[in-house]
């Protein structure tokens, strides 16, 4: 790629997930299906890290102009949920919405998304969350990059576009590293990035009016055997809730201060201190 990139075409992958903020006590698995039972009264949400990816895309658009296309994959996606990137300021929403896309693993999902991105055709940057809040695998972004033959940088907290390259701050255990990557590239975002913006009222109204583009497997040229449950390379043998053992001994006292003293004495007694 030569010279300055003016208007950037940015694609953001966004996943609809069960609300990860639901209280742990409401979490249930149906052992007959090996599936999670959605907690009643808690609608799904856009996966947290994906919102950071949308924010990163919008910041680049704000700085130098560009087009932000969000893309979501699933079955029976709730429009009110998956339109969130639009209400935050994205320009376009593409839904890969079909039963055939459901229950895929990282391979099947990355493959379908990569094929959809190929169909979109023009892109300088593809952004994803570092991992989804349901399966926590963190493979889809790297998988898309591999299928499309693009360089990737994972777990980013900042992206700047400088001289037709992305300058990325990548979070590592004792700080961060600054990585320069040629474009087009795929970058995954972490929560160390600046907080996602709240949708404005104007944004919400615009999103309501905007119709997403819906693509079926045939539209992106994939065979149903390669996607969703049929396209899996991993088999889930079992899904279960780990048993939490142990019982908490509550240390009492006439006052909080006294309880604190009793706790210190207790820790000394059982030789933790």
């Amino acid at each position: 790629m030569e010279g300055e990139i003016g208007i950037m075409n940015i694609i953001v992958c966004v996943k609809q997930v069960l609300d990860p903020e639901a209280p742990p006590a409401s979490f249930k698995i149906d052992p007959s299906t090996n599936k999670v039972v959605p907690p009643p009264g808690m609608p799904p949400v856009v996966s947290t890290f994906d919102e950071y990816a949308v924010e990163a895309a919008l910041r680049i658009k704000d700085a130098q102009g560009g087009k932000v296309t969000a893309i979501s994959l699933g079955a029976n996606l709730l429009r009110d949920v998956v339109k969130k990137p639009l209400s935050m300021g994205a320009d376009e929403l593409i839904l890969l919405d079909d039963e055939a896309f459901a229950e895929g693993d990282s391979w099947a999902t990355a493959y379908a998304l990569a094929m959809a991105i190929k169909k979109i055709g023009e892109y300088d940057l593809i952004l994803c969350g570092r991992q989804a809040a349901d399966w926590d695998a963190g493979q889809t972004g790297s998988g898309i990059a591999e299928i499309l033959g693009l360089p990737s940088v994972t777990v980013a907290k900042k992206i700047d576009i400088v001289d037709s390259k992305a300058r990325v701050e990548r979070v590592i255990s004792d700080g961060y590293e600054v990585i320069e990557v040629s474009l087009p590239a795929l970058i995954t975002l972490s929560n160390e990035h600046a907080e996602p913006r709240y949708p404005t009222l104007k944004g919400i109204m615009a999103a309501k009016k905007k119709e997403p583009i819906v693509w079926k497997p045939a539209d992106i040229g994939v065979d149903p055997s390669q996607i969703g449950a049929a396209g899996r390379r991993t088999k889930m043998v079992k899904l279960f809730q780990p048993v939490r053992e142990g019982k908490c001994e509550i240390i009492e006292g006439e006052s909080p201060e006294e309880a604190a003293v009793n706790l210190a004495l207790k820790l000394k007694e059982v030789k933790i201190l």
Binding site: G246, C248, G253, A260, L273
Partner: peptide
């Protein structure tokens, strides 16, 4: 709170009151 289910010992109370007294006593014991 979920933490009370996984902890070995717990104090139910405002940390602003508990922590200074706890720190003080630990200092003394150590």
């Amino acid at each position: 709170a979920n933490i009370m289910k996984v902890a070995r010992f717990g104090i139910v109370g405002d940390w602003k009151k508990v922590l200074p007294a706890f720190t003080e006593k630990v200092k003394e014991l150590l």
